[in-house]
């Protein structure tokens, strides 16, 4: 229990440092990355280029063990199919991301750096609540 809690804190710390170090916390930089037809700043592609192999390697280690380091269960493989809900959600998310240059992680991290982002974070929480309440996933 205590190890899990400390591990969550450590993961957050690493994630926050990574977002700040990479420049993902800066909406202007993110908008520059998305501006492929204009004054394109491709540097943020490096975030995915580095994060994905590191994640994949550590996932593989865990999957090979079959259990977490604490002996807990691992999530099953990603086997779900693509559906309209997923595609519509991704498109709506993309609209918002392109309008402000903020996705959820950097927006929350920015609460520590730029208080003005609170407006976005509150709106995002309301949007999440609306989707969960009125557009629940069919189980």
């Amino acid at each position: 229990m205590r190890t899990r809690a400390l591990s969550a804190l450590l993961a957050g710390l690493l994630f926050g440092c990574g977002l700040a170090l990479s420049g993902m916390v800066n909406p202007a930089k993110v908008l520059g990355f998305l501006d492929i037809g204009g004054d394109w700043d491709p540097s943020l592609a490096g975030v995915m280029a580095a994060a994905i192999p590191v994640t994949a390697l550590m996932y593989r280690l865990a999957v090979r063990r079959g259990r977490t380091l604490l002996g807990g269960a691992l999530p099953g493989p990603a086997t779900g199919g693509v559906d309209t809900r997923l595609l519509a959600g991704a498109a709506i998310f993309g609209l918002g991301w392109g309008l402000a240059g903020l996705c959820p992680g950097p927006a929350i991290a920015d609460l520590a750096l730029q208080p003005g982002v609170l407006l976005f974070v509150v709106a995002m929480a309301i949007g999440m609540r609306v989707a969960d309440r009125w557009l629940p996933r069919k189980s």
Binding site: A8, A11, L14, G18, S22, M24, G46, V47, M58, L70
Partner: peptide, 16 residues
């Protein structure tokens, strides 16, 4: 930054 983000995701999977 990407390496740190990957480590964060890896730790959260391996331990939690």
């Amino acid at each position: 930054g990407g390496v740190l983000i990957g480590l964060a995701a890896g730790v959260f999977f391996l331990i939690n």
